[in-house]
Every structure is written in structure tokens, then in C-alpha cells.
Computed example of a mutant assay.
Amino acid sequence: MAQPVLELRDIDRYYKTAAGELHVLSGTNLQLNAGELVGLVGPSGSGKSTLLHTAGLLERPESGKVMLDGIDCLALDDKGRTAIRRAKIGFVYQFHHLLPEFNAADNVAMPLMIAGTKQSAAREKAEHLLGEMGLDERGHHQPAQMSGGEQQRVAIARALANDPRLVIADEPTGNLDPGTTERVFATLIKMVRDEGAAVLVATHNLSLIRHMDRVLTLADGKLVDYQPD
């Protein structure tokens, strides 16, 4: 049996408040396999972002294990976790967070160059990814010269630049109209399927559920199958 891309094992995560400890994740377990698209739904404040940040090595839980391609990531120091995050994880957010002073191709090429890829090779890869996104003619345009849907497709291309094993998307289509949402999400699905990445998507948009292999929600800090009303 193939090794999972991501495993969360017995994750506990809480925050200290004036009223005491607020437990958000309690013995949470999750396994994602290559090519699998898993949705995460639930109301605001249910712990979706905490789960994504934990899986993406942006937050450290109080206990448990985060395994990525068999690597025990929490056993690494900060430098080691940063290296894993840059090499193996791509992030897509509701707000594209593109650098406004750079054009689309430069935004996509940036993580490649940070990882040590030569500028010419990074630029070539960026232009290829933008082409896959249907943005062949937009590489030289700055974010302010692009529509919201185009900006988000650039952000997806950037997230995929380093061929991540895991893509984490937090409300990736939250600011888009329904038609653009379908196009952007279809592009994301095609590219991650082609690359064999695992994808974890948090969304309030229930129309996207039909694209998912599985849909989960958090109940009392644990992941359970989502049962629509």
C-alpha cells in the first residue's frame, strides 16, 4: 500500500483564554493520499483554519504527529520544518497575496528562486504554469491589471510552482463569482490530479463539495464525515 502524503495522528491543539483552555483539536486524525481531494466544511470558529495551519506546519500542536511523506515533521527544528514547507507544501488562500510590484510571471517564479532555482529556469516554469491556467498572455501584467479570477489563478500557479506533495487551500474561491469559482476550481483540480498531489480544501461553498473525494467536518475537535442536511 502506498505511503500517505499527509498523516495527522492524535493532534491536540488548544488556546489559552481568560476563561481557560479552549480545545480546538482533540485527538484529531487525518490521512490524505496522493491524488486525493478532501474538503473541510463547518462554521467559522470550528477549527478549520487551525487544522490547516497545523497540517501546513504553520502552527505547532500541543501533542500528536504531523507526517508528510513519512517524515515526522514535528521532530524537526524550525529550520527543518521551514525547508519541508517550502519543498512539499503549496498554499492557496481566499486573498491571493500576490506581490503588487511584480508581474504575474515573477510572482509565480518567486518560490522557485527562493528554493534555489536559476532565474531563467524559474521564469520558464512560471510561464508554463500560467499557460496551464489559461493566462499565456498575462505573465507580464501586474496584479492590479488583472481580474479577481485571474489573480487567483496566478496564486494557484504560484502554489504549484515547486511541485508540492500537499496543497492546502483555505477558502480559495471565497471572493469569486460562481462562474469564476467553477473555472478556477476546475483548473486547480486538473493540475493537482496531473501532479498526483494531495489536496485539503476548507470552504463554505457547498457547491464545491461535488468535486471532492471526501468531505469532512470538525465535531468536538475531531474529524467526522460531513452529512449535509
Rank of each mutant, 00 (worst) to 15 (best):
L112F: 11
H128T: 13
H97Q: 11
L32W: 08
S26A: 14
D163Y: 10
M146N: 08
A83C: 06
R214M: 01
V184A: 08
N205L: 03
I209T: 08
R183S: 04
P172T: 06
N205I: 10
D12H: 15
D194K: 14
K65F: 01
S207I: 00
Q119Y: 02
I168D: 02
Q119D: 14
L200W: 05
D69F: 02
G196M: 03
D225I: 01
T203D: 00
A115L: 09
F102D: 01
G134Y: 04
G131I: 06
E137W: 06
F185S: 07
L25H: 09
L206V: 00
A115E: 13
I189R: 11
P143E: 14
Q3T: 15
V5K: 08
R210H: 11
P100Q: 06
V92L: 09
R210Y: 00
G56N: 07
G174R: 06
V5C: 04
E21T: 06
K88V: 01
P43D: 13
L57S: 04
K65T: 03
T187N: 07
P61N: 03
C73K: 03
T187Q: 12
L112W: 08
L223V: 03
L6K: 01
G139T: 12
F102H: 10
D213K: 00
A155T: 08
I89C: 04
L223P: 12
A121Q: 15
Y14M: 07
K125W: 01
H96M: 07
Y15A: 03
R153E: 10
S120W: 09
L51R: 05
L58R: 03
H96G: 04
G39I: 08
